Simulated assay, not measured.
Amino acid sequence: MNRSLWTAASGMRGQQLNIDTISNNLANVNTTSYKKQRVEFKDLLYSTIKRTNLNDNQGRPVNLEVGHGVMPVATTKDFANGSPVETQNPLDVAIDGGGFFAVATPNEEIRFTRDGSFKLSVDDGERILTTSEGYYILTEDEDVITVEEGMTDLNVDQLGNVTARNEDGEIEELGRLAIIDFPNPQGLLSDGSNLYKTTEATGEPIFVEADQMKSKVLQGYLESSNVQIVEEMVKMITAQRAYEINSKSIQTTDEMMQQANNLKR
């Protein structure tokens, strides 16, 4: 009977992690470019009490086995696009399709993001395109985008080319935003602040050339979270009921053990 206690406990632990993940999705419903997560489960080892034993098509055709519960094995991100929301801010850009922007952190590490709420930060008297934290946005040449004093009409086309009008009224090219893809985006590790970093599972970053672009860069838009509140609420109710029924299994086992202990000869 003790097996049922540990089996039900594993179910409660698994559903607690499920609720934690759903709660994080709901907490980030308004986070720019947030990608919802879901927990994946697998059953644990089985105790085989009797095995199949067929001889000349006679004997036991099925196993007698009992499981030991459940185990969470992964949290998978859904990289489906969120809806583009118009902001009319020329520094806001969104990727319509696959891909990530490349970002340089202060310790010279490369991170990746889909959050295009860029800012102009002043560094040594120069205005440089950065994230809200001040991390540099990289170009296809792994350089930064510098907007000189007096430049106006900053423009980002659908291929990620950044241009501006200089003081002489001429259009000047400032660089092309690096658009990066991965063989396995699911292997990216969340680093907080809407940033991801690579792992061995992602494969080598792939720079998407302008003539190979299948996505579009939209200026004046931000990508919203792809969390669907109604869907997450349904998942939460299901997880709550699963947690409840596992706790009921523990209560039932406890009552059965109490009855066994109270048996009198």
Rank of each mutant, 00 (worst) to 15 (best):
residue 58 Q to E: 13
residue 158 Q to M: 10
residue 243 Y to H: 12
residue 123 D to C: 04
residue 112 F to N: 06
residue 80 A to V: 09
residue 206 I to V: 15
residue 14 G to C: 04
residue 28 N to P: 11
residue 105 T to R: 02
residue 213 M to C: 10
residue 242 A to I: 06
residue 5 L to G: 11
residue 144 V to W: 05
residue 56 D to S: 12
residue 50 K to S: 14
residue 136 Y to W: 11
residue 202 T to G: 09
residue 220 G to T: 03
residue 156 V to Y: 11
residue 95 I to K: 03
residue 237 I to N: 06
residue 202 T to K: 01
residue 179 I to N: 12
residue 161 N to Q: 13
residue 232 E to L: 02
residue 138 L to W: 02
residue 96 D to W: 02
residue 93 V to H: 07
residue 2 N to G: 12
residue 57 N to S: 10
residue 134 G to N: 13
residue 111 R to T: 08
residue 115 D to N: 15
residue 50 K to T: 11
residue 259 Q to F: 05
residue 107 N to P: 06
residue 55 N to Q: 13
residue 231 E to S: 15
residue 196 Y to L: 11
residue 192 G to M: 12
residue 57 N to A: 05
residue 173 E to I: 04
residue 186 Q to D: 14
residue 70 V to P: 08
residue 106 P to Y: 01
residue 238 T to K: 02
residue 214 K to C: 06
residue 83 S to A: 13
residue 206 I to H: 12
residue 184 N to L: 08
residue 103 V to Q: 01
residue 219 Q to R: 03
residue 235 K to C: 08
residue 81 N to I: 06
residue 169 G to M: 01
residue 78 D to F: 12
residue 238 T to S: 11
residue 92 D to Q: 03
residue 21 T to R: 07
residue 214 K to G: 14
residue 221 Y to F: 15
residue 172 E to N: 10
residue 182 F to T: 05
residue 85 V to E: 10
residue 79 F to W: 13
residue 236 M to T: 00
residue 234 V to W: 01
residue 263 L to P: 07
residue 211 D to Y: 00
residue 246 N to H: 13
residue 181 D to H: 07
residue 54 L to D: 09
residue 236 M to A: 08
residue 49 I to L: 15
residue 128 I to W: 03
residue 249 S to F: 05
residue 110 I to N: 06
residue 91 L to V: 03
residue 11 G to V: 00
residue 60 R to Q: 14
residue 193 S to Y: 10
residue 204 E to K: 15
residue 26 L to N: 04
residue 33 S to N: 13
residue 176 R to P: 05
residue 97 G to Y: 00
residue 63 N to A: 06
residue 174 L to D: 11
residue 264 K to V: 14
residue 160 G to C: 02
residue 65 E to Q: 15
residue 241 R to I: 12
residue 135 Y to G: 07
residue 112 F to L: 09
residue 198 T to C: 10
residue 252 T to K: 06
residue 101 F to H: 00
residue 41 F to P: 11
residue 42 K to Y: 08
residue 151 M to E: 10
residue 55 N to E: 14
residue 88 Q to P: 00
residue 247 S to C: 05
residue 230 V to I: 15
residue 38 R to A: 11
residue 135 Y to I: 04
residue 222 L to E: 08
residue 247 S to K: 04
residue 100 F to N: 05
residue 257 M to T: 13
residue 111 R to F: 12
residue 66 V to Y: 08
residue 201 A to F: 13
residue 179 I to Y: 06
residue 131 T to H: 00
residue 106 P to I: 10
residue 204 E to Y: 09
residue 178 A to M: 13
residue 139 T to F: 01
residue 44 L to H: 04
residue 255 E to W: 01
residue 103 V to N: 07
residue 191 D to N: 12
residue 155 N to G: 03
residue 21 T to V: 14
residue 189 L to Y: 07
residue 219 Q to E: 07
residue 24 N to M: 07
residue 154 L to H: 04
residue 239 A to Q: 00
residue 218 L to N: 08
residue 212 Q to G: 06
residue 151 M to A: 05
residue 164 A to M: 08
residue 75 T to I: 15
residue 261 N to E: 12
residue 15 Q to N: 14
residue 61 P to V: 02
residue 109 E to A: 11
residue 257 M to H: 12
residue 176 R to S: 15
